[in-house]
């Protein structure tokens, strides 16, 4: 198996390399790809949409339809992880671990034993793959998470003027919640950001995106043609700021969708669908 695999791979690689000799050089500014379509985007991004970052304009305006499906792919991944993994079993795990808060003692209670009360202030439940409780990690992450979220909002809002945008900001927002879940435990995170919230917010994010396009359709223009939003925003027709605001609105939708789906996938993957104990 190994020999055939190695041979296949070497032959494929050699063939591909041989035929790659006709391709344009690396860094060639006059290749067909660099001269046919992209100058139009670079020259017209400020004029059409008043957005300096041409990548954002192409992503959300010229090829905004593709991006809508990209966001749907993200939502599909969340749905698929939920669909495949989630189990609402009521069987209890073989052993539960509790920590006695004043003394730091660990208790292990076997199946069938008497568990401490749910809201006991003295005993907190810890995961079976337990790392020692660390004051430093918990409090450092508490500080970092707030700044990560602030930076994420900055990235979303500045997608027009610097590298950034909805996807990047959404991933940062999602990772802040995942950081909270890693430094504390999964149950505490679930209490603050329930799975239902994540699922519904993800769908709402993509709905914001396609809803913006649908509003354009209702106003008479083609789908996702943000110019049709000018009367709603109080701008003259043909004002590039209408496109700029349209792009911003879809970026917000993308950020919501990506954030919720990242958290949703983490919930399902880290606990293998049981939402009982996480990483």
């Amino acid at each position: 198996m190994k020999i055939t695999g190695l041979l296949t791979v070497i032959i494929c690689g050699a063939l591909l390399t041989y035929y790659a000799m006709d391709f344009p050089d690396f860094g060639d500014g006059r290749s067909p790809a660099n001269t046919y379509l992209s100058p139009h985007f670079l020259e017209n991004t400020m004029h059409d949409a008043h957005v300096p970052n041409s990548v954002t304009t192409i992503l959300a305006d010229y090829r905004g339809y593709d991006t809508m499906y990209e966001t749907t792919v993200v939502l599909t991944a969340g749905l698929a992880c939920f669909f495949l993994l989630r189990r609402k079993e009521s069987t209890s795990p073989p052993a539960r671990f509790f920590r006695h808060v004043p003394t730091g003692l660990t208790l292990r209670i076997e199946e069938g034993g008497k568990l401490p009360a749910e809201n006991s202030k003295v005993f907190t439940r810890i995961d079976s793959l337990w790392a020692p409780d660390s004051l430093i990690i918990r409090n450092t992450c508490r500080l970092i998470i707030a700044f990560v979220q602030l930076f994420a909002l900055y990235v979303v809002a500045h997608g027009h003027y610097s590298p950034g945008g909805g996807f990047q900001g959404g991933v940062l927002l999602g990772s802040s919640i995942i950081l909270f879940s890693i430094s504390n435990d999964l149950r505490r995170t679930l209490k603050r950001f329930r799975e239902k919230t994540a699922a519904v917010l993800g769908a709402i994010g993509v709905l914001i995106y396609s809803g913006t396009g649908f509003v354009c359709l209702l106003m008479g223009a083609h789908f996702l043609n943000y110019e049709a939003l000018s009367p709603l925003l109080g701008l003259k027709t043909g004002d590039p700021m209408a496109r700029s605001h349209g792009i911003f609105s879809v970026e917000i939708g993308v950020a919501f969708a990506v954030m919720s789906v990242m958290i949703w996938i983490y919930y399902n993957l880290s606990s293998a669908g049981k939402h009982d104990e996480g990483l």
Partner: peptide
Amino acid sequence: VYTMGGWSAPVGI
């Protein structure tokens, strides 16, 4: 033929 976003080919989809 339907142009998405109002941009005709080859600029748009």
